[in-house]
Protein backbone atom coordinates (compact mmCIF):
# COMPACT_ATOMS: atom_id res chain seq x y z
CA UNK A 1 0.00 0.00 0.00
CA UNK A 2 1.35 3.44 -0.99
CA UNK A 3 1.31 6.78 0.78
CA UNK A 4 -1.24 9.13 -0.79
CA UNK A 5 1.18 12.04 -0.66
CA UNK A 6 4.60 10.68 -1.61
CA UNK A 7 4.02 7.16 -2.99
CA UNK A 8 6.33 5.62 -0.37
CA UNK A 9 5.40 2.55 1.68
CA UNK A 10 2.37 3.32 3.83
CA UNK A 11 2.45 2.82 7.60
CA UNK A 12 -1.29 3.21 8.12
CA UNK A 13 -4.45 2.84 6.05
CA UNK A 14 -7.30 5.22 6.88
CA UNK A 15 -10.32 3.58 5.31
CA UNK A 16 -12.74 6.35 6.29
CA UNK A 17 -10.59 8.80 4.32
CA UNK A 18 -9.94 6.27 1.54
CA UNK A 19 -6.24 7.01 2.04
CA UNK A 20 -2.96 5.64 3.37
CA UNK A 21 0.06 7.54 4.64
CA UNK A 22 3.74 6.87 5.31
CA UNK A 23 5.01 7.72 8.78
CA UNK A 24 6.06 11.38 8.18
CA UNK A 25 2.92 12.21 6.21
CA UNK A 26 0.67 10.51 8.74
CA UNK A 27 2.24 12.60 11.53
CA UNK A 28 1.64 15.71 9.39
CA UNK A 29 -1.99 14.65 8.78
CA UNK A 30 -2.53 13.99 12.50
CA UNK A 31 -1.22 17.38 13.62
CA UNK A 32 -3.31 19.15 10.98
CA UNK A 33 -6.43 17.47 12.36
CA UNK A 34 -5.57 18.64 15.88
CA UNK A 35 -4.88 22.23 14.81
CA UNK A 36 -8.09 22.20 12.76
CA UNK A 37 -10.02 21.18 15.91
CA UNK A 38 -8.31 23.88 17.99
CA UNK A 39 -9.02 26.65 15.50
CA UNK A 40 -12.54 25.57 14.59
CA UNK A 41 -13.66 25.58 18.22
CA UNK A 42 -11.35 28.38 19.38
CA UNK A 43 -10.06 26.08 22.10
CA UNK A 44 -7.10 28.18 23.27
CA UNK A 45 -5.88 31.75 23.05
CA UNK A 46 -2.16 32.19 22.23
CA UNK A 47 -1.32 33.57 25.67
CA UNK A 48 -2.98 30.74 27.62
CA UNK A 49 -1.18 27.84 29.25
CA UNK A 50 -3.03 24.58 28.73
CA UNK A 51 -3.38 22.00 31.46
CA UNK A 52 -3.31 18.61 29.72
CA UNK A 53 -4.91 15.79 31.69
CA UNK A 54 -2.70 12.75 31.15
CA UNK A 55 -3.25 9.14 32.12
CA UNK A 56 -0.15 7.52 30.66
CA UNK A 57 -2.25 6.15 27.79
CA UNK A 58 -1.79 6.74 24.09
CA UNK A 59 -4.41 9.48 23.64
CA UNK A 60 -3.41 11.95 26.32
CA UNK A 61 0.33 11.58 25.74
CA UNK A 62 -0.19 11.93 21.96
CA UNK A 63 -2.19 15.10 22.64
CA UNK A 64 0.47 16.51 24.93
CA UNK A 65 3.12 15.72 22.30
CA UNK A 66 1.22 17.53 19.53
CA UNK A 67 0.57 20.61 21.66
CA UNK A 68 4.25 20.86 22.62
CA UNK A 69 5.33 20.36 19.00
CA UNK A 70 2.88 23.02 17.82
CA UNK A 71 4.45 25.48 20.24
CA UNK A 72 1.70 25.75 22.87
CA UNK A 73 2.52 26.40 26.52
CA UNK A 74 1.43 23.36 28.49
CA UNK A 75 1.57 21.60 31.85
CA UNK A 76 0.40 18.08 32.61
CA UNK A 77 -1.98 16.84 35.27
CA UNK A 78 -1.85 13.21 36.37
CA UNK A 79 -4.63 11.89 38.58
CA UNK A 80 -3.40 8.95 40.65
CA UNK A 81 -6.42 6.68 40.96
CA UNK A 82 -4.66 4.22 43.26
CA UNK A 83 -5.40 1.24 41.00
CA UNK A 84 -2.56 -1.06 42.07
CA UNK A 85 0.34 -1.56 39.63
CA UNK A 86 -1.70 -0.04 36.79
CA UNK A 87 -1.61 3.41 38.42
CA UNK A 88 2.05 3.03 39.40
CA UNK A 89 3.06 2.20 35.83
CA UNK A 90 0.87 4.87 34.23
CA UNK A 91 2.26 7.54 36.57
CA UNK A 92 5.81 6.50 35.67
CA UNK A 93 4.99 6.85 31.96
CA UNK A 94 3.66 10.38 32.53
CA UNK A 95 6.64 11.41 34.64
CA UNK A 96 9.09 10.05 32.07
CA UNK A 97 7.28 11.88 29.26
CA UNK A 98 7.20 15.17 31.19
CA UNK A 99 10.89 14.91 32.08
CA UNK A 100 11.93 14.10 28.50
CA UNK A 101 10.07 17.18 27.21
CA UNK A 102 11.04 19.49 30.06
CA UNK A 103 7.40 19.98 31.08
CA UNK A 104 5.75 20.45 34.48
CA UNK A 105 3.60 17.58 35.69
CA UNK A 106 1.12 18.15 38.52
CA UNK A 107 -0.01 15.04 40.42
CA UNK A 108 -3.24 14.70 42.40
CA UNK A 109 -4.05 11.63 44.44
CA UNK A 110 -7.69 10.58 44.30
CA UNK A 111 -7.33 8.78 47.62
CA UNK A 112 -6.50 12.07 49.36
CA UNK A 113 -9.49 13.86 47.86
CA UNK A 114 -12.19 11.20 48.08
CA UNK A 115 -10.90 9.36 51.15
CA UNK A 116 -9.91 6.08 49.50
CA UNK A 117 -8.36 4.78 46.26
CA UNK A 118 -10.74 3.88 43.41
CA UNK A 119 -10.79 0.09 44.14
CA UNK A 120 -11.95 0.81 47.71
CA UNK A 121 -14.47 3.38 46.49
CA UNK A 122 -15.94 0.72 44.22
CA UNK A 123 -16.11 -1.82 47.05
CA UNK A 124 -17.75 0.41 49.62
CA UNK A 125 -20.17 2.28 47.36
CA UNK A 126 -21.03 -0.60 45.02
CA UNK A 127 -21.52 1.88 42.20
CA UNK A 128 -19.92 1.11 38.81
CA UNK A 129 -16.18 1.73 39.07
CA UNK A 130 -15.99 3.82 35.89
CA UNK A 131 -18.82 6.04 37.16
CA UNK A 132 -17.06 6.98 40.43
CA UNK A 133 -13.76 7.29 38.57
CA UNK A 134 -15.20 9.58 35.88
CA UNK A 135 -16.88 11.78 38.48
CA UNK A 136 -13.65 12.06 40.48
CA UNK A 137 -11.60 12.88 37.38
CA UNK A 138 -13.91 15.68 36.21
CA UNK A 139 -14.03 17.20 39.70
CA UNK A 140 -10.30 17.00 40.35
CA UNK A 141 -9.33 18.28 36.90
CA UNK A 142 -11.37 21.43 37.46
CA UNK A 143 -10.16 21.88 41.03
CA UNK A 144 -6.50 21.39 40.11
CA UNK A 145 -6.76 23.83 37.20
CA UNK A 146 -8.27 26.48 39.47
CA UNK A 147 -5.67 25.88 42.19
CA UNK A 148 -2.76 26.22 39.77
CA UNK A 149 -4.25 29.11 37.79
CA UNK A 150 -5.03 27.44 34.46
CA UNK A 151 -8.18 28.49 32.58
CA UNK A 152 -8.42 25.55 30.22
CA UNK A 153 -8.06 21.77 30.58
CA UNK A 154 -7.46 19.58 27.51
CA UNK A 155 -8.30 15.88 27.57
CA UNK A 156 -7.38 13.11 25.15
CA UNK A 157 -10.91 12.10 24.16
CA UNK A 158 -10.80 10.79 20.61
CA UNK A 159 -13.44 10.22 17.93
CA UNK A 160 -14.16 6.69 19.20
CA UNK A 161 -14.64 7.94 22.78
CA UNK A 162 -16.99 10.68 21.63
CA UNK A 163 -18.97 8.43 19.27
CA UNK A 164 -19.36 5.81 22.04
CA UNK A 165 -20.50 8.46 24.53
CA UNK A 166 -23.01 9.79 22.00
CA UNK A 167 -24.24 6.27 21.29
CA UNK A 168 -24.78 5.64 25.01
CA UNK A 169 -26.62 8.93 25.47
CA UNK A 170 -28.88 8.27 22.48
CA UNK A 171 -29.57 4.69 23.60
CA UNK A 172 -31.04 6.10 26.82
CA UNK A 173 -32.17 9.45 25.39
CA UNK A 174 -30.16 11.31 28.00
CA UNK A 175 -30.94 14.73 26.59
CA UNK A 176 -28.96 16.55 29.30
CA UNK A 177 -25.87 14.59 28.28
CA UNK A 178 -26.49 15.39 24.61
CA UNK A 179 -26.50 19.10 25.46
CA UNK A 180 -23.16 18.80 27.20
CA UNK A 181 -21.42 16.76 24.51
CA UNK A 182 -19.11 19.07 22.62
CA UNK A 183 -15.43 19.31 21.60
CA UNK A 184 -15.23 22.52 23.63
CA UNK A 185 -17.21 23.37 26.76
CA UNK A 186 -17.04 27.03 27.63
CA UNK A 187 -16.64 28.26 31.18
CA UNK A 188 -20.12 29.16 32.44
CA UNK A 189 -19.03 30.13 35.96
CA UNK A 190 -15.89 31.77 37.37
CA UNK A 191 -15.06 28.51 39.15
CA UNK A 192 -15.50 26.31 36.05
CA UNK A 193 -12.56 26.11 33.68
CA UNK A 194 -12.98 25.58 29.94
CA UNK A 195 -12.73 21.94 28.85
CA UNK A 196 -11.58 20.98 25.36
CA UNK A 197 -11.00 17.79 23.38
CA UNK A 198 -8.53 18.53 20.57
CA UNK A 199 -8.40 14.85 19.43
CA UNK A 200 -12.11 14.51 18.70
CA UNK A 201 -11.46 14.39 14.93
CA UNK A 202 -9.05 11.43 15.24
CA UNK A 203 -9.85 7.76 15.75
CA UNK A 204 -8.41 5.51 18.41
CA UNK A 205 -6.37 3.69 15.73
CA UNK A 206 -4.93 7.02 14.61
CA UNK A 207 -3.95 8.17 18.11
CA UNK A 208 -2.33 4.78 18.80
CA UNK A 209 -0.43 4.94 15.49
CA UNK A 210 0.71 8.51 16.20
CA UNK A 211 1.95 7.57 19.69
CA UNK A 212 3.78 4.56 18.28
CA UNK A 213 5.36 6.43 15.36
CA UNK A 214 6.49 9.25 17.66
CA UNK A 215 8.14 6.72 19.98
CA UNK A 216 5.94 7.64 22.93
CA UNK A 217 6.20 5.07 25.71
CA UNK A 218 2.56 4.69 26.77
CA UNK A 219 0.72 2.13 28.87
CA UNK A 220 -0.77 -0.46 26.51
CA UNK A 221 -2.56 -2.56 29.12
CA UNK A 222 -6.11 -1.45 29.76
CA UNK A 223 -7.39 -0.42 33.17
CA UNK A 224 -8.29 -3.58 35.14
CA UNK A 225 -11.71 -2.09 35.85
CA UNK A 226 -12.50 -1.30 32.19
CA UNK A 227 -13.35 -4.92 31.40
CA UNK A 228 -17.09 -5.16 30.93
CA UNK A 229 -17.54 -1.36 30.99
CA UNK A 230 -20.54 -0.12 29.03
CA UNK A 231 -18.39 2.33 27.07
CA UNK A 232 -16.27 -0.57 25.83
CA UNK A 233 -19.38 -2.50 24.74
CA UNK A 234 -20.59 0.54 22.81
CA UNK A 235 -17.20 0.91 21.13
CA UNK A 236 -17.33 -2.72 20.04
CA UNK A 237 -20.76 -2.22 18.46
CA UNK A 238 -19.50 0.84 16.59
CA UNK A 239 -16.32 -1.00 15.51
CA UNK A 240 -18.52 -3.62 13.79
CA UNK A 241 -20.42 -0.90 11.96
CA UNK A 242 -17.19 0.83 10.97
CA UNK A 243 -15.80 -2.40 9.54
CA UNK A 244 -18.68 -2.82 7.11
CA UNK A 245 -19.17 0.89 6.49
CA UNK A 246 -16.00 2.99 6.97
CA UNK A 247 -16.80 6.50 8.16
CA UNK A 248 -19.85 5.46 10.21
CA UNK A 249 -18.44 6.76 13.49
CA UNK A 250 -17.31 10.00 11.90
CA UNK A 251 -20.71 10.57 10.29
CA UNK A 252 -22.54 9.70 13.51
CA UNK A 253 -20.52 12.14 15.65
CA UNK A 254 -20.04 14.96 13.16
CA UNK A 255 -23.66 14.77 12.00
CA UNK A 256 -24.73 15.17 15.61
CA UNK A 257 -22.39 18.08 16.28
CA UNK A 258 -23.31 19.94 13.10
CA UNK A 259 -27.01 19.19 12.70
CA UNK A 260 -28.61 17.55 15.75
CA UNK A 261 -26.94 19.10 18.79
CA UNK A 262 -28.58 22.53 18.39
CA UNK A 263 -31.97 20.84 18.83
CA UNK A 264 -30.98 19.79 22.35
CA UNK A 265 -29.73 23.17 23.52
CA UNK A 266 -31.50 24.23 26.68
CA UNK A 267 -33.83 27.17 26.33
CA UNK A 268 -33.45 28.11 29.97
CA UNK A 269 -30.15 28.31 31.81
CA UNK A 270 -29.41 25.89 34.63
CA UNK A 271 -28.74 27.71 37.88
CA UNK A 272 -25.18 27.09 39.04
CA UNK A 273 -24.16 27.55 42.68
CA UNK A 274 -21.21 26.73 44.87
CA UNK A 275 -21.19 23.53 46.89
CA UNK A 276 -21.78 24.29 50.57
CA UNK A 277 -19.10 21.76 51.49
CA UNK A 278 -16.19 22.38 49.06
CA UNK A 279 -17.10 25.55 47.14
CA UNK A 280 -16.89 23.90 43.71
CA UNK A 281 -19.68 24.48 41.19
CA UNK A 282 -22.83 22.36 41.36
CA UNK A 283 -26.52 22.53 40.52
CA UNK A 284 -27.59 21.36 43.98
CA UNK A 285 -26.61 22.35 47.51
CA UNK A 286 -23.86 19.74 47.84
CA UNK A 287 -21.91 18.56 44.79
CA UNK A 288 -21.86 14.93 43.61
CA UNK A 289 -18.18 14.57 44.51
CA UNK A 290 -18.71 15.65 48.12
CA UNK A 291 -21.64 13.24 48.38
CA UNK A 292 -19.39 10.46 47.10
CA UNK A 293 -16.58 11.40 49.51
CA UNK A 294 -19.04 11.52 52.40
CA UNK A 295 -20.40 8.08 51.52
CA UNK A 296 -16.88 6.66 51.31
CA UNK A 297 -16.00 8.22 54.66
CA UNK A 298 -19.06 6.73 56.38
CA UNK A 299 -18.70 3.29 54.81
CA UNK A 300 -14.96 2.97 55.44
CA UNK A 301 -15.42 4.07 59.07
CA UNK A 302 -18.05 1.40 59.77
Amino acid sequence: MKCRKCGGTAALELRRHNAAFCSPHFIEFFRKQVTEAIHRHRMFAPDETIMVAVSGGKDSLALWDVLIEEGYRTAGLYLDLGIFDYSKESREKCEAFATSRGQTLHVERVAEAVGAPIPTVQQVTRRPTCSACGLSKRYLMNRAALQHGYVVVATGHNLDDEAATLFGSVMHWQTDALTRQSPALASTHPKLVRRVKPLYRLSELETAAYAFLRGIDYIVEECPFAKGATSIAHKQVLDRLEETSPGSKHNFLFGFLERARPAFERTEDVELRECTSCGQVTTGAVCAFCKLADLVKRRTAS
Binding site: S55, G134, T155, N158, E204, A208, F225
Partner: peptide, 12 residues
Protein backbone atom coordinates in the same frame (compact mmCIF):
# COMPACT_ATOMS: atom_id res chain seq x y z
CA UNK B 1 -1.49 -4.29 19.81
CA UNK B 2 -5.08 -3.33 20.69
CA UNK B 3 -5.89 0.36 20.42
CA UNK B 4 -9.07 0.48 22.52
CA UNK B 5 -9.17 2.24 25.85
CA UNK B 6 -12.16 3.17 27.88
CA UNK B 7 -13.95 3.32 31.17
CA UNK B 8 -14.35 6.32 33.45
CA UNK B 9 -14.56 9.29 31.18
CA UNK B 10 -12.29 7.98 28.40
CA UNK B 11 -9.60 10.23 27.06
CA UNK B 12 -6.85 7.92 28.17
Amino acid sequence: RPVMSGGGGGGA
